[in-house]
Design a protein around this nucleic acid. Structure first.
Lengths: 341, 341
DNA sequence: TTGTAGGCGTTATCAT
DNA sequence: ATGATAACGCCTACAA
């Protein structure tokens, strides 16, 4: 190894050209396997490039080609297992197509969301994948991105009332149907739903699916058995209290997510309720390591975060490949599914 | 809203200049608040820029300035809660300094690691944060990155025997010390360690710390009580079997991580061992939701992934700010700590 | 088959 | 206080 370690300006096409006494364009073409360049020249160029450890300057190429081979991903929180596995899948799919992933977490803060989008725009990402935060109401940025011709694909938490943008999400009704059926088959008559915040449209849909599922399984639907929680521990406890106060206590609970179930478990412990016996629970999965628990829920409703992420990513990539594929602009819906641990 | 939506070429400095009949350089300077530009001109420029929705073309700026305001982060797996919370913190720290984060997961595959590094290099990231995969032995890339003048900061799983590169990691010995002490105070004499693969240097260090901790607490150290596992379920079970086969069975176990503890829990369940009574467990934390479990471990050894990530990120940012800060090139060590759930 | 020249958008240097 | 010019590294008509 030589001791002469110069500051080492990166090798450029020009230098290769100079050393070879040919023109930079020839080098460029040779490097890109342009058919019009002679085989010998091509070889000579490639050999020298190899020797000199030539690396194309992507920033120059990005600049010139107006393309960055970069996808921006915006999601509420990376440390949520649900999103961690989504982004993990996204990164893999993108990587296969030589795209890299730029990251931004909104922390459910609409302002942060906009900042991230701006930052992505200035970074000239080729496209954006996004799962909306819970508090996002203003969707103007979609229109703005369209002006900039930056395609966006939503997944998981997708916008309502916007139908000219691709969306990937999970249809909860199938899972709810299966869950209620599972309860019904086990003889449960009073089934409760601990839902998310009442203000969220998604919560309303959940309730509807729940109602339908009950009726489909020959059970009655009663408002009382649907309680709303803002997903804090207190709120979850209050929800449980409400259910306990009912004259006819439910023997089965469908919980908004695994965190809610965790609180149910604690609550049950404190009150001496025997979970899985006095009360059975099914929750929408987002954390599941149930197989290690003593009184796990009966089952979980799987929402396929990795699959959603992967699908969204490949839709976006396809969109970038083929700008005009209007057919892609539609909903891609995964059926949620009841899974036993 | 007008119906005239042209393809909408992005506005450039040149156009603003043309419309204002001034030179592009003046526009550039005005936009950047250069002191030599008159106040009126500056205002006029900014006003028009605003009106036209001018957005500087970052790819051009990146290209020109040889800086991308991008950090590359390489870690084994994003969906590991440990790394998810690390990257989450990294993104926040980077964001504060207007840096974005480029993502790559190695899946513990050295080849993937190198590909990601290459990809980062072509993307001209300003610096790299990395947690090594378990199987990485060849560290030549460090030297290569140095040639390219791309600084790298390691965190969590850091390279051995490379001392001219910043490293952030957690000193396990403090946590081990506290754990053993906690066991000792509860009267345990036979304490076992379920360690990681015997081939890993880190495993050796763990054993050493464990030994020291035992001696410091007036207990004997005996090889028999250290068993190695490759962290598969079978291997964890075998480790437990080995411990059960001992004449003098351990009453306390220090487990490599929470996954191992999960397997211990299952094993105990199967064998009718009452966890927390017949045997007490402490594990290195990486998944903890123990407060919801019935027989949780006595405590966990916290390794502060978020803090490690944040620290590594700010070191890297400082390094980028101030190329010559040699003092930064040293180990930044967090003390692991025993925490009760 | 290869070379020349111009341009991508921005900024820095030198002039005016 | 402002303008002209060149340069960053690469690509691509167009010319030869």
């Amino acid at each position: 190894m030589s001791s002469m370690n110069k500051p080492n300006k990166p090798i450029t096409i020009k230098e290769i050209a100079r050393k070879l006494r040919i023109s930079p364009s020839t080098v460029s073409r040779a490097l890109n396997d342009h058919p019009s360049i002679g085989l010998v020249t091509t070889m000579r160029v490639k050999k020298l490039a190899e020797e000199l450890n030539y690396e194309p300057n992507q920033t120059a190429i990005f600049f010139k080609q107006r393309k960055t081979f970069t996808l921006g991903v915006i999601l509420p929180k990376l440390s949520e297992p649900f999103f961690a596995s989504a982004i993990s899948a996204i990164e893999e799919v993108a990587g296969e197509k030589k795209f890299t992933v730029l990251l931004g977490q909104s922390l459910d803060n609409p302002e942060r969301e906009l900042n991230i989008i701006n930052s992505f725009r200035t970074h000239r990402v080729d496209g954006i994948l996004m799962s909306l935060g819970k508090n996002t109401t203003n969707l103007d940025f979609i229109e703005r991105l369209r002006k900039y011709e930056i395609p966006i694909v939503f997944f998981d938490c997708v916008p309502e009332g916007v139908d000219d943008v691709p969306k990937v999400y999970c249809d909860l009704s199938t899972g709810i149907q299966e869950a209620v059926q599972a309860f019904a088959e086990r003889g449960h008559k009073q089934i409760a739903l601990i839902n998310g915040p009442e203000t969220l449209k998604a919560s309303g849909e959940r309730t509807l699916s729940f109602k339908k599922a009950l009726l489909d399984n020959g059970l009655n639907f009663d408002d009382k058995y649907v309680v709303y929680s803002d997903l804090t521990e207190e709120s979850n406890y209050q929800a449980m209290e409400k259910l306990r106060d009912l004259a006819d206590r439910p023997s089965a609970i469908l919980a908004f997510n695994d965190y809610v179930t965790f609180d149910i478990i604690r609550y049950a412990k404190e009150k001496g309720i025997y979970l899985g016996h006095d009360i059975q629970v099914i929750s929408f999965a987002n954390y599941s390591l149930w197989k290690y628990m003593d009184n796990p829920p009966l089952a979980s409703i799987e929402q396929y975060p990795a699959e959603q992420g992967a699908k969204a990513a490949s839709i976006l990539l396809e969109l970038l490949d083929n700008k005009d594929s209007e057919e892609i602009i539609q909903d891609h819906i995964f059926a949620s599914k009841l899974v036993y641990q």
